[in-house]
Design a protein around this nucleic acid. Structure first.
Lengths: 150, 150
DNA sequence: TTACATGCAAAATATTTGCGTAGGA
DNA sequence: TCCTACGCAAATATTTTGCATGTAA
């Protein structure tokens, strides 16, 4: 239920924030946000466009980019970079639910994780450097341990 | 002296590694590595190209990209992403001397830092996730505290 | 009605690659 | 000499933008 609630609030958040900023809630924007909320991976603009077009074939790649830009400014979407050439996107419900990525450099698989120690440490580091932390990205790249899992 | 030694070893490392991998040490490669060692910021390919051309006007942007690619594979150069569209490069002497970046989102200034706690924590997190850590990127984005510095 | 948003196609960026030549080992 | 690396220019890939039209408020 928690996940569902979170998704609803993201969509509500979208509408509320759109209104607050004088932006229009269009069918395209609704579809793009919905698709991105349903995605449990990190699609790039082109992948997102393909998915979006399964719902509404008329939506253009330009609108996808423009919408992602707007959503990023509203902190509804976070833009990520995993080292290949293109940007990847994911829903970020406000600043909550912060997580990072462990990337399997052999398979390309991306695992999300959260670690409170890390959050604390980053705040502390930023503070020591004389900064107010606004955002942060951490990506770990590695290979699966032979012993573990599989 | 320490810095000088480190730079020398980077250049020596280049030659040694080139030989080991059957790669040729060309004038272009020497210039590119030298310029990158002398840079204390994080130039992108185009900036690097401009700097390199002050030494040898015939060096092309393609060679800069190709050299950076080779150097990255040899772990002599690290590719970074600070959120604008282009990749940035810096010398990384082996795996030592690891550091991260605190980016001032107002001025674009980049401050490098190192934190042992962070290194330990990242190793631990990767291990807990069942991974052998190969590489990692951390970027903090923030604004300068009013009270601090200035 | 009236701006803002959209689709389309062209443009702007960043990076890679084919090809014939130059040059390091 | 031989093969890798180079310069050049064209090709790719990704993202942005101008413009005429559509549409939410």
């Amino acid at each position: 239920m928690d996940l569902v609630k979170r998704e609803q609030s993201a969509l509500e958040g979208l509408e509320a924030l759109c209104h607050a900023k004088g932006l229009r809630i269009t069918g395209q924007r609704r579809v793009i946000v919905q698709i991105l909320m349903d995605a449990d991976d990190h699609p790039d603009a082109d992948e997102l466009h393909s998915m979006v077009r399964k719902v509404d074939r008329s939506i253009s790649i330009a609108t996808v980019y423009r919408t992602l830009q707007v959503l990023e400014q509203m902190n509804i979407v976070a833009k990520r970079d995993f080292g290949d050439g293109r940007a990847r996107y994911e829903i970020s419900v406000g600043q909550r639910d912060h997580h990072h990525h462990m990337i399997d450099i052999e398979s390309g698989e991306v695992i999300e994780f959260y670690n409170q120690e890390l959050e604390d440490l980053k705040m502390r580091i930023a503070d020591e450097l004389g900064f107010d932390l606004v955002d942060h990205h951490l990506e770990l790249f590695g290979t699966r341990l032979a012993s573990a899992g599989d």
